[in-house]
Write a protein that binds this DNA or RNA. Structure first.
Lengths: 387, 387
DNA sequence: TATTAGTTAGTAAGTCTTACTAACTAATAC
DNA sequence: GTATTAGTTAGTAAGACTTACTAACTAATA
């Protein structure tokens, strides 16, 4: 806990005033004073500073009440006060975007992740960021910083990617690589962690503070938000739902095909569904193909996918029993077929959990990772503006 | 977030100073000033107030350094400044204790939980508390309040025990019942929740802030501490490990014998071990009997207990995968036989989790619940003293 | 053994910063 | 014209800080 002094007091109150202005479409000094129980001179003084720093602006007068009185001056938050770069590095593509403080993606670009030496990818990112800056005519001073999402285990303190199988990185000094090319603050975290931050800020998880985001794709991983804060765990390994065991007997014969691959991933991920069905029908199919066949009631597809659904549902149910979250949000390639299986999933969950919990599919599209990466930055960056 | 003003600042600094004094065996004003980067007059002013309110006391002079200089005055925390009542209501017994602010149990008593109407049990508790107060010659002003632990789901906001099967309570207004008999602040929570608080404060979980406490007895439940705070979940149902499913196929035929009873409880709790073995050998045995037979390599006992161990271990492993805690502490009747099965449990856990996590048995004895209940009170009660 | 120089703990007085109250002006509805 | 409300100014309150001081101590020296 920080010791208190006068400047600490003002920092607290300034954050409160700014948050108040953000939460209302527009608001007056008198209204802020009432809402926050701060005296009118105090509010006026703080508003003067926020106006000077361009966090807010005046938008003309409001209406005076029927009882009479001076018209209030309306104040509004200025989302163009600053911009943030969001970078989402995936196994197959890298997305880069620049957003304002409302999370509006002003510019966006994507390129395929190629099997370069690690450094070439950073040169490409640097080029992408410069391109987007030019399109927006952004000065350096307007850029507050950068958030980056990566599929792997990240140690935020040391700035190392401890392991990221999809990118073939181990103990990779990503923060150093990025700081060589960008001279503003940078924060890096796991991709499902930034996803739950993004859902909380601008997604389907808004206005709730205890969320779980589960990504079901080539792997299965999850991000956890508790009391409005990302929960990472002691070894930055919280949320490894892919490791969960839901079939004791079947798990006896389970052997990980590589390090960092868990039981639930081996039975319920997109790639394992595709692989298992391919084996059975003697033909190469993808997970999407598998779901299409499932809808056509193909016997093999039904067997493989029902087995996966049962394990996945139990994994989600176990999550609910342990965390009792407000909402579970599903993302990743397999979640796009969620409507196909949602009734069955919900039925299993309802049967094995103490309390009902809503499970929904993310509403975010291709820009999800960028918004999540920006949310990471805004959460970690020390400023009077917070999300 | 509270708005900042001068009295808020002083509250912050007073807490910091008190915490500093508690954390050292004894300390001087000058030392506190250095440690907290507060000016010496500020520390002196705050220390004066703490002395006046008897939170601390002076214990003579320390040594001056070899470089010369005035001897410091040593200050110490006064654990007798206040006392707290802890009440642990179990299915078979009720424990009552009074502790000081160091968690020292000064007086303790226990009586069997009898099948009274609910109110008789509160009369007995009131009698017990009065008896302990008399033994300690405690005035009312010295008693800060009461913490209570109960095996069930508690809504802390409404003060209702939503359900407690072992006590046969449903939507039971426990806070009201207690406030009728005691006129100081009272906090009630689930018994595994208070257990993890107790382990954090005075138990094996000291100095760590991300803990899980798992109680394995007639049921199986757990308490979760995250970043030093108890995590209860959206419906006060977090930590319901007893509901976890670890055997997909076996769970297909699972039917709860009553509401509030989950899959893992049905295969790994003490009562289910005893019941299952009794069925097999056609003779009534307890869980303890079962473990004794297991040690003697009785075939049926081995089958039943190995099955329970596998499921329990996978449940713990799943917990580690999801939460990545610093420590898992086991309590409850079955945990007393943990040494018998710990190697097998650890082996399964190590195989199915991404990161190693220590699993230990609680070191607490009969007074565990009382200390946990007191910890609940000290966590929830708004005072400059915090744990 | 007495004295002096240097160091440290704790206190006194004044200053600074921020929020507050009281009083005021500007602006509006009825 | 009166009552009401928004916003501003002047002066005050509370807490922490800085500066200077006193009290108390050790090491070095005569």
């Amino acid at each position: 806990m920080l010791k208190g002094n006068s400047s600490y007091i003002q920092q607290i109150n300034k954050r409160l005033v700014l948050e108040c202005i953000i939460n209302e479409e527009s608001i007056s000094r008198a209204s802020i004073s009432k809402k926050l129980s701060l005296s009118k001179p105090t509010v006026s003084s703080i508003v003067d500073q926020l106006l000077e720093d361009e966090w807010i602006y005046e938008t003309g007068n409001g209406e005076s009440p029927a009882s009479g009185g001076r018209r209030p001056v309306n104040l509004k938050f200025n989302p163009q006060k600053g911009y943030i770069v969001g970078v989402d590095i995936g196994g197959t593509k890298v997305a880069i975007g620049i957003t304002d403080l409302n999370g509006k993606v002003c510019e966006f670009t994507v390129f395929p992740t190629q099997q370069y030496e690690g450094d070439s990818i950073f040169n490409e990112i640097q080029l992408g960021v410069e391109t987007l800056k030019k399109r927006l005519h952004l000065s350096d001073s307007k850029l507050l910083g950068m958030g980056v999402g990566i599929p792997g285990v990240i140690n935020m303190a040391s700035g190392l990617v401890i392991e990221a199988p999809a990118l073939k990185w181990t103990n990779f000094p990503i923060l150093e690589k990025l700081k060589e090319r960008f001279d503003y603050p940078i924060f890096v975290d796991n991709d499902v962690n930034i996803s739950v931050l993004g859902e909380h800020w601008k997604g389907i998880g808004q206005k709730r503070d205890n969320l779980v985001y589960i990504a079901i794709g080539t792997g299965i991983g999850s991000g956890i938000m508790i009391n409005g804060e990302l929960y990472r765990g002691r070894n930055f390994s919280a949320g490894e739902i892919g490791y969960m065991v839901t079939d004791r007997d079947y798990a006896k014969n389970y052997r990980p095909v590589f390090d960092g691959y868990g039981f639930l991933e081996s039975v319920a991920s997109g790639s394992s569904i595709g692989n298992e069905l391919s084996k059975r029908i003697g033909k190469r199919v993808t997970a999407k193909d598998a779901f299409d066949l499932y809808l056509k009631k193909d016997k093999d597809a039904v067997t493989v996918i029902d087995f996966a659904i049962e394990n996945l549902s139990l994994g989600i149910a176990n999550y609910i029993s342990i965390l009792d979250p407000e909402l579970i949000i599903l993302g990743g390639g397999v979640s796009e077929s969620y409507h196909v299986i949602s009734d069955k999933v919900q039925s299993i969950i309802d049967r094995f959990t103490p309390k009902k919990c809503e499970v929904v599919q993310t509403a975010f599209g291709i820009e999800a990772g960028v918004i999540g990466a920006v949310a990471l930055f805004l959460k970690e960056y020390d400023s009077i503006f917070d999300i």
